[in-house]
Design a protein around this nucleic acid. Structure first.
Lengths: 202, 202
DNA sequence: TCTATTTGGGAACGATCGTTTCCAAACTAA
DNA sequence: TTAGTTTGGAAACGATCGTTCCCAAATAGA
């Protein structure tokens, strides 16, 4: 290492945090969708000039994919945190469903899920988007299946339950909640779905 | 009535059927979404010149809303036809779920549901879209609830089932299936969701 | 036949899109 | 200092968007 090295790259330092900017972009993309979100809207929301945006990201799609990845990272961390408090497998499944119900009503519900939005608007004709959606769905489903098996191991879920098939249904329920949340059912309705769905584990 | 009246309006007659054109527009809007579907794509798919399009419809949004209404009309008719063959309430619920599963895999799945697409892409900031999505969801949910009550009346569904809460979950499942179908699970997976979901009626 | 009306079709319009360019500013390394 | 590099920010670019205009064609009614 050079004695004079500051560990900083050459050139003028960036004056904003990429992740802060992405958090703003996530809101715009979630509410408006990919195509309706213009660069003009994005730069205003992110507090950047167009030039700065294009120095940080290759193009609009790169902004979107980075937003998607950031969204997944944040949501996954929040969900993992919630699941860590679960008493057993069954309780963890319930907490997972409640996590989605919480995000599927009111203002958050109207804002929408970036994964669902990407699946609907982009995945069909964009391979990068499709791969990310596919990985997200597979991860969530595998997680649900693992929670069911955990519940069967700790006795909170009957052994007769088919873990994979039930994980399929519960994944459908979570994605469906996100769709319904867009047109705003109230909180009680979203949570009544959770209670009724838990019957699948009896 | 005038003797000479042909019952035809004045001016040059339209050379295409509105409903045929809308059936083509439905495909474009379903695959691409509202914003990504350009007038250029629409007129090519519908086989019309831009001028003719704008004589038949006020603007792009009017084309979309007419496509939505046509889509709902066709799908509702198909579903009603399928339900008419059901033996009892439980069988009808099963047929309804299979109807959605059939539309949620392969090419049809990738094409997607216009109701879900509208909910995700348009409903948040367009009142006309939101109203149509809301009415569609309410109709479907009311239908499911009615089928459950029918099953309870004919003995095919236990009386202990909560018709409204169960209708909530099953509606979520159908909308979730449509989302998952966009990234293309295979036929068996879509139908395994139906089988597992039917457990809610035990 | 003449007028009024409507459609078909293509050319043209202004607006907005995503992107690039340009220059001053801020930094490192020599 | 000087050269090299990167960012901030605004102005500008070509492309495409949704929409309108215009004219020939096709019809009804008089």
């Amino acid at each position: 290492m050079d004695i004079n090295s500051t560990g900083r790259p050459p050139g003028r330092p960036r004056e904003f945090e990429i992740e802060d900017a992405l958090d703003k972009a996530i809101i715009v993309f979630s509410e408006r969708g990919y195509h309706a979100a213009s660069i003009s809207e994005l730069k205003d929301a992110m507090g950047l000039a167009a030039g700065s945006l294009y120095k940080a990201f290759k193009d609009k799609k790169a902004i979107f994919l980075a937003s998607f990845d950031r969204y997944k990272q944040v949501r996954n961390a929040l969900l993992d945190q919630e699941l860590a408090e679960g008493a057993n497998g069954r309780d963890k499944v319930s907490r997972m469903l409640r996590f989605y119900a919480e995000a599927s009503h009111g203002e958050n519900g109207r804002r929408g899920c970036l994964v669902v939005g990407t699946a609907i608007e982009l995945a069909v004709y964009d391979a990068d988007a499709a791969e990310r959606v596919g990985r997200s769905m597979a991860r969530t489903e595998a997680m649900i299946e693992a929670l069911i098996r955990e519940g069967q191991a700790d006795g909170s879920i009957p052994p007769a339950i088919d873990p994979l098939a039930t994980a399929h249904v519960l994944l459908s329920v979570t994605q469906g909640l996100r769709v319904l949340g867009k047109t705003g059912p109230n909180r009680d309705r979203a949570f009544s779905v959770v209670d009724a769905a838990m019957k699948l584990l009896d």
